[in-house]
Design a binder for these strands. Structure first.
Lengths: 208, 208
DNA sequence: CTACATTTTGACCATTCAGTCAAGTTTTTG
DNA sequence: CAAAAACTTGACTGAATGGTCAAAATGTAG
C-alpha cells in the first residue's frame, strides 16, 4: 500500500497544467455554457477523450480553474496590512488589482461570469471563506477610521467600490476600448487610469 | 399596395411584449448560450413554434431585448445637464443608476454579460452611438473642470468609475449578498449604499 | 528487454436544442 | 356570417455536444 492518492506522474503534471491554461482562455471568453470540451481540447492540443482522461467532467475542469483563479485573485487583498499606513495600503491594493486586470483579464472575466450567473459553483466559498476575509479587512478599515486616519465611510462599500472600479477595466474591456480606442493603445494607459482612479478614491476617503 | 411593413396587429403587440419580458429574465440569468428557446417559450406561456412565429431566430429575440435595454439604460446619462450644478448633476445620475441596479438588475446583467463576452451583438453600437454620447458628456465634465467647479480628473475614467460602482450592485448582487446577508435584507440598504458611494465619489471630485 | 501501468484516440452513443412544417384553430374583415 | 388572414402547435429533423469504450501506443520500473 503506497497511499499516494494525490501522486501525479510527470505527464499528468504537464498535461493538467496545459489543460487548465487552455480552459481559462476558453471559459473566460465564452462562459461555462458557451464553451465546449472540444474547444478546450483543441486549444490544449489533444483529443477530447484524452482531456477527459484527466478531468472526467466538464465541470471538473471549470471548478479547478475557478479555484486556482480565486486564490490568485485574493492574494493582494489578504496582504492589506493593518499596521501599514491606511492610504498607502489602499493605494497599493488598488494598483495591484488594476495591474491584475490589465495583465490577466481572463481571470477577472472568469470570476465575473460565475458571479453574474448566480455563482452556482462557488456560493459556499463566497459565504464562508470570502465573507470571513472581507469581514476581517472591513474591521481593519473600521479601526483606521476610528483612529481618524480615514474619513468615516462604510468599509464594505469602500471595498466593493475598489473591486468594481478596478475589475471594470478587465470585465468591460471591450467597452473601454470602444470608447477610448486611441488611449487604450498607449503605453501609459494603465498609469493614467490608475492615476485617475486613485485621485478620486483617495481624496474621497482622506480624513477631513 | 398598403406599404405597412411595420404594422403590428393587436395580438402581435401583446405577444411580442410578453416574449421580450420572458426573454429578459432568461437571458439575464443564463446568458445567450445558456438560455434555450424552450425556456423562454415556457416562461412566456406559449409553444416554441409560436414564439418562433414572432421572432424567427433566437438571435432576433436577444438583439431586440438588448436594444430595448440599452435605450432605458442610457436615458439618465443623456439627462446629465451641462447647465446644471456639476456635483448635483453627478449625484443625481449616480443615484438614478443605483436605483436602476436595484430595481432592474436583469437589464444590467444582460448588458454586462454581452460586454463580458466581447459584445458580439453591439460592437458597432458601442463604437458609434455610445462613444459619441460619452465623448459629449466627457466634454461637459471637462468644461466643469475648466470652470473650477470640479477637481481635475479624467472625465472618461470618472464616468467609468460611476458605471462600475453602480452596476456592481446589480451584476455582483450574489457576491454582495453573500458578504452582507443581513444588510441587504434591510429596507435602507439602498440608501446606505448610495450614501457611501456618493460620499467617496463627490468628496473625491470636489474642487480643492 | 520485458512486463506492467499509463496515456492516447477513433468510433460511437444519447441528449439537447435551434429551427421546420403541415395541419388545425382563432381572429379579423367585408 | 363566410372567406381570408393571422395565429397556434404536435411532431419532426439535423447539428452540436458531453461523455463512453475498447483497443492501440507509449512510457516506466525492474
Amino acid at each position: 500500500m503506497t497511499g499516494n492518492i494525490n501522486k501525479q506522474t510527470r505527464i499528468q503534471g504537464i498535461n493538467r497544467s496545459i489543460i487548465l491554461d487552455a480552459a481559462l482562455e476558453v471559459f473566460s471568453a465564452y462562459g461555462f455554457r458557451g464553451s465546449t470540451i472540444d474547444q478546450i481540447a483543441e486549444k490544449a492540443g489533444m483529443s477530447k477523450p484524452n482531456l477527459l482522461y484527466y478531468f472526467p467532467r466538464k465541470d471538473d475542469i471549470y471548478v479547478t480553474v475557478l479555484e486556482k483563479t480565486l486564490e490568485d485573485w485574493l492574494a493582494p487583498f489578504k496582504d492589506i496590512d493593518p499596521a501599514g499606513d491606511p492610504v498607502a495600503e489602499l493605494r497599493k491594493y488598488t494598483i495591484q488589482k488594476l495591474k491584475m486586470s490589465a495583465q490577466q483579464p481572463e481571470r477577472s472575466q472568469l470570476f465575473a461570469n460565475e458571479i453574474l450567473h448566480g455563482a452556482p459553483s462557488i456560493q459556499k466559498f463566497l459565504k464562508s471563506n470570502l465573507k470571513r476575509l472581507v469581514d476581517e479587512k472591513a474591521d481593519v478599515i473600521a479601526d483606521w477610521i476610528a483612529a481618524g486616519k480615514l474619513a468615516p465611510v462604510d468599509p464594505y462599500h469602500l471595498i466593493f467600490m475598489i473591486w468594481a472600479t478596478t475589475q471594470h477595466y478587465a470585465d468591460f474591456d471591450v467597452q473601454v476600448r470602444a470608447i477610448l480606442p486611441e488611449e487604450t493603445a498607449k503605453a501609459d494607459f494603465f498609469d493614467k487610469a490608475a492615476d485617475s482612479i486613485l485621485t478620486i478614491l483617495l481624496n474621497g476617503i482622506m480624513p477631513r
